[in-house]
Each structure stands twice: as C-alpha cells, then as structure tokens.
Design a protein around this nucleic acid. Structure first.
Length: 537
RNA sequence: GCGGGUGUAGCUCAGUGGUAGAGCGUCACGUUGCCAACGUGAAUGUCGUGGGUUCAAGUCCCAUCACCCGCUCCA
C-alpha cells in the first residue's frame, strides 16, 4: 500500500504542477468532491470525450446484424421535471430513512419493515419475534400470518396474537438497530444504522422557494435520453435498433467523496441507451460489452489492470437480465473499480416513463408490418395484431454508461511511467513520462530551436504556427534541449521537432519520439503531413 | 457517518513559544550545438481558516474546512 500511495501522491502532484487537475475553489480551502481541470487536463478530457463521440456517434462500428450501428446524440438539460425521478426510481426512499443489510445488500425503508411479535393471549413476553416487510401494519400482519401459525404449532399450538411495530417506531423507542433482524436474512446484526438517503442535489426553480418548486440536479444523464425517446423517434428517421448518446454533467451528493477524482459529487458521464427488440437484445448486449471494453484497450488501457467483469445474478437489478462492469485496478485501491457499466435494462425505463407520463412510448415496426400484414386478412384481427408485439412494442434497452472523469483518471494512471534516460554525460537518470495514446495526448507536438541563434527560432516558430492549424502544438525555446524534451515527456507529448544546424544546410529537422527517444530526420516541408499521418489529425 | 493522521512558497518538505527557511521548479539576463547544463540576479507565503491562551503563536488550546489512511457507504 505504501508504494501505491506514493504512486498516487506522485500522480496528483504532477497533475497539479503541470495543470491537469486542481481542487475546486482551492484558494478558499477547497470543497469536498469537486475538481477543476486545468489547461492540460481540459485537453486530455476533451480528447477522451471527442474520441468517444467519434467512435460511438459519428462513426460507430458495425453491429452484430452486419449493418453500421445507428446512433444519434442529444444534450439534455440538467434539471428536469421532478416526476422524472419518481419514474426512474431515484426519488423513492427520500421521505424516510433507510437501513441496509450488509449480508443480502437489501435496502429497506424504516417505515416498511416491521417487527412481528407472536405471543399467547395474556402473556407478557412473545414466544417468537421476526421481521417482515409490508406497506403498512395491516399488510405486514397479513404477510406474517403464515409464518406465525407455523411457529405457534412448533411451540405447542393454541391461540396466539400478533403485533406489528414498524422499525421506525421500534427505533424511536430504542435506537439499537443491531437487535433487529433483516427481513430477508432473518438474523440480527446485519443491518446498518438508519440513514437518510438524499443523494440528489436539490434546488428551487423560480423565485418562490417552497415544496412545489423543488427540483433536482440530474444524478445521471440517462433519464434525459428516455424522456426524449419519443421526440427522437418522431423527428429523426431512426429505426430500431438504434442508440441515443449523450455526454454531460451529473450530480450526486455522495456521503463520502474520496480517491481523488474517482468519486466526485459533480462528474461527467458518457452514456448510450441502445434500443432494440427483445429477441435481439442479448446479441446487442454482447456486442456492446465487447465494443466498449475494446475501446479502452485500443486507447491504451492495455495492462492487466483493466478487466471486464460480468455481474452475478445477485448483483443484478430486478429488471436486468445481464450487466457487465468494465473495471480498472486504480493505484489507490486493492480492488477493481468501475469505469463503465454495460447493462441490459429490459424495457424497465420506457415502461416506467410511459406509466408515469401517461404517454405512449411504444415503437411501431413499419417494415415488419408491411412484410406480414397479408397474414391478417380479417380487419379486426389485423388491428389487434398491429398494436402488439412484434409490430408495436416498448424496445429493450442496452445501456453502456461510462464516467468521463473516471476514464480520464484511468488513462492518467496507466500513462504515468518512470523509466530511465541518459543525461548529458550519458548517465542514466529517472525520467517521468506520461505515455498517453497519441489520440489522447493533450499536446501532440512541440517545436524547439536547438539553440537561440542563426535563425533557428524563426524556423521552429514558423513550423509551430503552421502545425497548430491542425493539432495542439507547443513552442519552447527556454533552457537546454534535454530539459525541454523532459518537460514534454512529463505531459505526454508524443513528438518533439527540433530545428538544428542541419536544418539550415539541408532543410531537414529531427523528430524525436517520446517513448523510444528515437529520432528521425524529416524535410521541414513534410513535417505537418508526417505528423498528421501518425496522429490522424 | 466513525476512528486515526496531515495541512508552512508552484511541487517536495525542514522549522526548540522569540527575525519565515531549503531543494526543485518559475521568471530575467548572459551562455547554449540533441536528452533533467552553467553563471548572475529576481519573484513567490494572511504558515488551511476562525477564535482563544500568552509580553510574544507556524509552534500550545478550541472550533471549522480540506486532504490522506482504516472502517462504513456507493441509491
């Protein structure tokens, strides 16, 4: 742990020193869970987002059906009608504190779990106590009857009386939660202390600050996509299967933000909701699972620190058929941490929004109907068939949901390398280098005059001005050449171009490669083309 | 949320209740001939913040904020 801690310390120090990441409002003592990207950090993160958008939206891969994936983008408001969060399930459990079970991972509202006491008529002490879930005392008692009868028989039979007290009331009288049993696991001691879960940031819309004007900052970008599903269907010519993508900020009022930018209260997501038929959904799920994993690998997360983990049945949400996490072993933890989740969500979200909004969010498959309608000669039969699957249905959703800040942090961790390079006297010295994939590097190329005379600076600057029309470039004539190379290594610049004496004689420059330190000579007129070819800019 | 630790220059860190420091970095000038050069000079601090004790607080006390570690948590 000590060595890994040192690694994170070095990385965070580098990120601060070279302008990748700053703590938010640092001059006022900072604020927990919020981070700013500096001049180099914003380039890095933007490159990651742009690459994602290019690879997923504007130039998506070929799907399992042999056709190019159809994908459109949206950019939705952060604040939405609060009913959205009722439909999505994010608002439930707000009114009452909750307890979690450490064993079964269940979460229960205190007013919906009851302590059931079974006692003989007139007896002071119950002969059996257990826990039961219910919407109210009545439903809890009803649910408990079967078990109480069995317990009564076991204890010799005879009449018994039931009493149900909600955990809320029990704990009000006696705050010891460890004597209460989890209604699922049925053993005491597995429940956490009750807590208020209010992880959505709350605000007021309009000048009037009362209950009717409460709104929330979105805790995920996905719901904006679902809420616009019908709009996109009606106004573009997409056909299922297709996806809607969005990059944007989300907010969660995390109890305990930690691990640098990994768990922040304000963060940026890159999400796709991919809509397909139920029949093809597992095929699409497998496709996205692999496509998204490969995306990270292709951009440089090559080590064994990246893995694709299928969630176990117990981890899955009730509506989900399958979910895989793309995880990275960050230096700050012994455990893999989630970068992205690829979830098979069934049609849960569209069902919820159709129900809560009262709007029809079904999709009608024209092509299939045109193909099959001859099979329904009877008009009434045809009308019924037309409005049911496989012609009209709520599409199934596969959701690849990635964290842009987490990806940025993973790429930084993976890129950070210490190796050795010879100094002026040929002695090996430690070198810090960020080995970013060239596509992600904040600065693509730096231009140096070997020395500041004989017209070298002018030539180098002219090349710099020409090149920056196409890519982020940097000009540096300060200090010795070796030092300038090292400065660029430290921020991950893949190429450095040096104008030297030979440039004056034959018009060639040296291009030095970041990872290998190898140098090649290129005619100065060909430098831009040489770089654009290798950087795809 | 609980317990422990830390907070001094851009970074890493010294600093016995009595003048605010070092290395690296940054900037200027000179030098420069391909991998962390050298010389000279310079800038940089409400010692996290707010109270308190004291003749005097970076140092002691209290509170608070931020970060780190361990638990917890991650809807």
């Amino acid at each position: 742990m000590a060595a890994e801690q040192t690694f994170m310390d070095k990385l965070t120090a580098l990120c601060k020193r070279r302008g990748f990441i700053y703590q938010s409002s640092e001059i006022y003592g900072g604020i927990g869970g919020f981070w700013d990207y500096g001049p180099l950090g914003v380039e890095l993160k933007r490159n990651i987002k742009n690459q994602w958008w290019r690879d997923m939206v504007t130039n998506p891969p070929r799907g399992p059906d042999g056709r190019d994936v159809e994908m459109v983008g949206v950019d939705c408001a952060i604040i939405m009608n609060p009913k959205v969060w009722e439909a999505s399930g994010h608002a439930t459990g707000f009114a009452d504190p909750m307890v979690d079970c450490r064993k079964c991972k269940g979460r229960f509202r205190l007013d919906q779990v009851f302590r059931i006491e079974v006692r003989r008529p007139g007896a002071a002490e119950p002969f059996a106590v257990f826990s039961m879930q219910g919407d109210g005392t009545h439903s809890a008692l009803e649910a408990a009857t079967g078990r109480a009868t069995k317990l009564s028989k076991k204890h010799g039979g005879g009449e018994y009386a039931l009493a149900a007290t909600s955990f809320k009331d029990v704990l009000a009288a006696d705050p010891r939660v460890d004597v209460l049993a989890c209604p699922t696991c049925d053993e005491p001691g597995t429940l956490t202390e009750p807590r208020q879960f209010n992880l959505m940031f709350q605000t007021y819309v309009g000048a009037l600050q009362d209950a009717s004007s409460i709104a929330y900052l979105r805790p995920e970008t996905a719901q904006g996509i679902f809420a616009n599903f019908k709009n996109v269907l009606d106004t573009t010519r997409v056909k299922v299967p297709f996806g809607i993508a969005q990059i944007g900020k989300s907010f969660r009022n995390e109890i305990n933000p930690r691990n640098y930018t990994f768990r922040s209260r304000e963060f940026e997501q890159m999400e796709i909701e991919f809509f397909c038929s139920e029949a093809s959904s597992m095929e699409w799920y497998e496709f996205w699972r692999k496509t998204r994993y490969d995306w990270y690998v292709n951009l440089g997360l090559r080590s064994e620190k990246l893995r694709l983990r299928d969630q176990t049945r117990e981890e899955l949400a009730h509506y989900s058929k399958a979910c895989a996490d793309i995880e990275y072993l960050f230096p700050f933890s012994d455990e893999f941490q989630e970068l992205e989740g690829v979830a098979h969500r069934g049609n849960f979200d569209l069902t919820q929004h159709a129900q809560f909004s009262g709007k029809d969010l079904s999709y009608f498959d024209d092509e299939a109907w045109e193909r099959d309608k001859e099979q329904y000669p009877d008009p009434e039969q045809a009308r019924r068939a037309k409005n049911a699957p496989p012609y009209r249905y709520l599409p199934t959703v596969v959701e690849p949901s990635a964290g842009a800040d987490r990806a940025t942090l993973a790429f930084l961790c993976e890129a950070y390398t210490e190796d050795t390079a010879p100094d002026e006297k040929g002695v090996l010295q430690t070198r810090v280098v960020l080995k970013f994939h060239p596509q992600l590097a904040p600065v693509k190329v730096a231009f140096f005059p070997l020395v500041n005379k004989e017209g070298m600076p002018e030539i180098a600057e002219a090349l710099y001005r020409e090149t920056r029309r196409y890519m982020t470039a940097f000009f540096d004539d300060k200090g010795a050449i070796g030092r300038r190379y090292r400065r660029q290594d430290e921020v991950g610049t893949p190429y450095c171009v040096t104008v030297d004496g030979d440039t004056l004689r034959d018009g060639s420059v040296t291009i030095r490669e970041r990872d290998t330190l190898a140098q090649v000579r290129v005619k100065k007129e060909g430098v831009v083309a040489w770089l654009r070819e290798r950087l795809g800019q």
